[in-house]
Design a protein around this nucleic acid. Structure first.
Lengths: 234, 234
DNA sequence: TGCATATTACTTGTCGACAAGAAAAATATA
DNA sequence: TATATTTTTCTTGTCGACAAGTAATATGCA
């Protein structure tokens, strides 16, 4: 009999490999399963996903473009570091994007936008009720991302998405200690923000989102000052 | 004699190929030498640069990450379109980043930052004096990018760099008709902004940069309403 | 032993080739 | 003639292999 079986069947469509490893690495980086600074081995990934190094490399190039990974020329590529000791740039940008996107949403929103936003609002409320911390982080991000989409400014939505990614990474450090003192208040604030967007009151949307953002920031700061994050060396 | 000459010498260092074609394509896209929507042929580029398709592809992936090209799965990659008919998102983001970066620069600047900023300020003044439009665009961008660097917020500097890129692309449409009514005034405004940054007066820096940004925007709007850009089909 | 140099082992960047998929062309069918 | 189907042509995505470059190890030397 012939030893050329009909090819072991790669069982995987043509452009899907890159996306798979990209998504996986992205998740592992944002959840800090891959520690900042740790090396990424191309051949190891190639074996793990049973593909050649080419799609692996493409995924790494894309991650490097988003700043999640750093490519040292002719040497290994490593997971990017976050400066956990100086989060001010992150906070500044986060607050400003909260404001800008919410303000724009109040101006540009369409009826269908509100339905989507309300959906995530309810998801978040549900997460708070069940005290599911990871779901809270995810649905809160989705809620604000939806607001940003309603603002229809790609420059802002792109930066905001990156900020929410980094926020997820930062909160991963602490998600065990993320207590439920504030989340209930956040639910109410979200409702107020929705009302302002629906009323097309951009000034009120701006004011509310600013207060909201600053409370989130101060909550993070409080978490960071309260106790050390796990035992990770910075 | 042997026909294996000591290899025609690729005469090109190891990681440099990607950067070469990346830089070239980026320039050609931003200067509209490559029309939005036009196809990019990998093999053609490979022949032109005398290298294999691999580094070409990596450059394209990076450009796609910055939104300058669009990769259609299993089909060609094309130069991204700019929505020239609705520049409002661009203007909104541009004005906000002018303000945010200048404000931060007034807070965070170090002595050496001012020297760099003044250098580009003089370059811009020189470009205005010699009426070199392309140099004006470039040095003005460099001036504000330097201010953004002094603000030391990577989120803002990255977005701002992208905005300045798109601005270069937009102005390429018109650079012939970019008259010299305002540039002289811009020189003076730049000087005022520098003074505010030096005095660490962030409120004044904010106010001045806002006025400055809005004048630039209105100048662009005026250009667009005055006459049609070349004969390019949108 | 301690430092400089050469050798080795390993990783990355590049290459040419091939196969999957899509567009274009050619052929068949009503 | 117009539409549907097949064939061909071309481009892209993936692969395995190799060369350039770096880090680690071994060797030479004071």
């Amino acid at each position: 009999m012939s030893d050329t079986d009909p090819v072991p069947a790669p069982e995987r469509k043509r452009g899907s490999g890159v996306k798979m490893v990209y998504d996986l690495l992205r998740d592992e980086i944002l959840d800090l399963k891959l520690a900042p600074g740790s090396m990424i081995d191309e051949v190891q990934l190639a074996e793990r996903f049973k593909m050649s190094r080419t799609p692996i490399r493409e995924a790494l190039v894309r991650l490097a473009g988003e700043g999640l990974v750093e490519t040292l020329p002719n040497r290994s590529t490593i997971v990017s570091n976050i400066d956990f000791l100086n989060l001010n740039p992150f906070f500044d940008a986060l607050v400003l994007m909260y404001r800008a996107t919410t303000r724009l949403a109040a101006q540009k929103r369409q009826p269908q936008d509100l339905a989507i936003i309300r959906g995530f609002h309810e998801d978040y409320a549900e997460a708070v009720k069940t005290r599911d911390t990871l779901a809270m982080i995810a649905t809160n991000a989705a809620f604000h991302a939806a607001i940003a989409e309603a603002g229809r400014n790609p420059y802002f939505t792109n930066l905001f998405r990156r900020l929410l990614d980094d926020g997820r990474r930062i909160l991963s450090l602490y998600y065990k200690s993320y207590e439920d003192e504030f989340p209930q208040r956040f639910v109410e604030e979200h409702a107020e923000i929705i009302a302002a967007i629906e009323a097309r009151d951009s000034d009120r949307a701006d004011r509310l989102s600013r207060i909201h953002a600053e409370q989130i920031v101060s909550q993070i700061v409080r978490l960071f000052s309260r106790k050390d994050p796990f035992d990770m060396t910075l």
